[in-house]
Design a protein around this nucleic acid. Sequence first.
DNA 1: TATGAATGAGTATTCATTCAT
DNA 2: CATGAATGAATACTCATTCAT
Lengths: 206, 206, 206, 206
Amino acid sequence: MPRLKPEARAEKEQLRKTQITQAAYEVISAKGYNNFTLDDIAKNAGLSKGGVLHYFKSKEDILLYLLEQIYIIIKKNINKRSSKYRTPERRLRAIVIAFIVTAKRHPAFYTVLVDFWAQIPIHERVKYINTQIYKQLCDEVIKVIEDGIASGVFKQVHADNTAHAIVAMVMNVAIQWTFNHELYNIDHMAKTCIKMIMAYLEEKTK
Amino acid sequence: MPRLKPEARAEKEQLRKTQITQAAYEVISAKGYNNFTLDDIAKNAGLSKGGVLHYFKSKEDILLYLLEQIYIIIKKNINKRSSKYRTPERRLRAIVIAFIVTAKRHPAFYTVLVDFWAQIPIHERVKYINTQIYKQLCDEVIKVIEDGIASGVFKQVHADNTAHAIVAMVMNVAIQWTFNHELYNIDHMAKTCIKMIMAYLEEKTK
Amino acid sequence: MPRLKPEARAEKEQLRKTQITQAAYEVISAKGYNNFTLDDIAKNAGLSKGGVLHYFKSKEDILLYLLEQIYIIIKKNINKRSSKYRTPERRLRAIVIAFIVTAKRHPAFYTVLVDFWAQIPIHERVKYINTQIYKQLCDEVIKVIEDGIASGVFKQVHADNTAHAIVAMVMNVAIQWTFNHELYNIDHMAKTCIKMIMAYLEEKTK
Amino acid sequence: MPRLKPEARAEKEQLRKTQITQAAYEVISAKGYNNFTLDDIAKNAGLSKGGVLHYFKSKEDILLYLLEQIYIIIKKNINKRSSKYRTPERRLRAIVIAFIVTAKRHPAFYTVLVDFWAQIPIHERVKYINTQIYKQLCDEVIKVIEDGIASGVFKQVHADNTAHAIVAMVMNVAIQWTFNHELYNIDHMAKTCIKMIMAYLEEKTK
DNA sequence: TATGAATGAGTATTCATTCAT
DNA sequence: CATGAATGAATACTCATTCAT
């Protein structure tokens, strides 16, 4: 290997952090937030404990970084899918589906998220990050609803509360299904959710 | 002290178990599922560690027993409130409010519930209990919806999925509010939820 | 063993603490302040690590307790020996000898004391305890000197400074000899010290 | 950069060693003998860990080298001051003052020295160096005393023991004051020490 | 020469569980 | 029944040292 240049070095560091975070994600999904060790992460990342702590100064640091990554992923997914469409109805539908698809594609995703939720009451920093990003998710929905209201396709609802209700519903539908796939058919549930949302948003008198 | 008779003994045992479970509930709400010790429970219950382990054979046992109690409480609350009314609309509304009121009256309730959720992926027994009782909650809603459909006040929706969507929404609305009271006004949110549910369930006056 | 009564229990606790402190003393004299582990103490005391931490809440606690004991021992020794005599000269001589005899009887004594001294600059609590008790040792000497001045057998010296000089000299003589027995004959050194002290304190013009 | 010539290389190496030793001295005085890391030294010296270990093969090596430097400093100071005077009395006084001035000028000096003393019982090499150089310090005093005896200004005392007593006293006076400046006025103490020494050494019948 | 990434042995502390009293 | 002393397994974090670059 050639000697690394500064930018290559920084790149390698970023790579390591991603590698460690990924390992943490896998380990947490297998063992839960409170039942894994630094050793688990290290082994999973193909490093030694010391190596891991070279890039993150504590176990907690890894977790916080992971939490941010988690929300970034879901947000990106939402944006990517909703930006494909132009009409508010279709964009809203795309957002709902984004939440559901995440559950299908990443079996551990909501598992880890709930693990973090459980830390909120005892962990100021986790609470802060969670709140910030939960709001951002809702904001995406709010924007679409306001768009729909402005363009006359949606009723004059309270955009904030409606968005929160929608996110709460869809997210928890995804969570419960993650816990137990036999509870319901997730695709049918997605449709039910969309129908309920539209029934509320769309003008009855067409 | 005279030796207790069998029935008195059983009664005392039940008393002790309740006392210990209550202590566990308080301790978990203060410290989180993974950050409390048997000593915490013991002191909170006014017993010694050894005393606590007389009535439950392990820390895990206490937790499992507590989880059952938690769901029993919310189920009772739902039944009590919904049975006051006769029409499906009013009963459904009462159920929604029951979830919300629980969040307002018992600040630690959903906190502890999420703590348990976080154990599901790694804890077969917790998963089983959770599934069983989550289903029972949904069943309450299903019954009311089917009632409404039968009596013609609700549309011909898929009762199971609709119930799951409703429970998911309302429960998560309660959870997020428990985590952060400033996210929204919980009473307004309750109304928004009810409106959305009704918009979907009620015949549009065709 | 019969069930322990409260007073017997307290006695047993005191016994354990002494046992642990003694073990710490032995381990420190063998390995030095910074090179021993809780395991060492535990094994030396015939307990498990957990058992040791049942009586002291941390390693540091054991050390602090030991430091106090150390000074108590030397102070007792001084008092015992000096109280045997009536005249200031003889009492002062007895105090000097007490420091020296401590070095001869307890080979690890000054070793451990210097270990503690080394912690002073970085350890507020060690500094405090050290200062308090070092002053008390000097006070014993001050009293005798003032006695001697009052009764006319000693010159009008500055009692405080003289006492500090005496304690500094005798203690360091004991320390250096503890480090290296071949440096000098400790008994001859004791006499030299006493002669030097008396040359300064006694009236020349008898 | 051109490759360095051998002598330039040796010079650079010496420079680096001094630079590292100085850094070690500063770090130890701030953190104590057992609470600093190679990283601390490296950063303080403006090098990396690897760089430091280029010039010393281990952390211990740095410390040993430092210990030698420490004693060399005090010895130089003593020689410099005592060589200014001709009469034994004045030279002895100059030596005493040299110990005291060192404490005043170099706040960390005796701190680090005691740190080393604490290593003596567990560290053969530290013990050896200490003994050697402690003896050399005493030798300086012995020479002056023997001078004084030979020239008739001092009594016929046991020069070795007297010198050890003097060094023990003055050094410990400096040490205790380093630990706690409020214990006494160091200049007054110096005078007291000198008076005590002279009272013993000088013929009474002048 | 010099760097700093990586290692891994070493350690204090926590805590569920056991059991003698 | 009840206590709490004692155990010991588990684990996060530190840091001297090595070595590839």
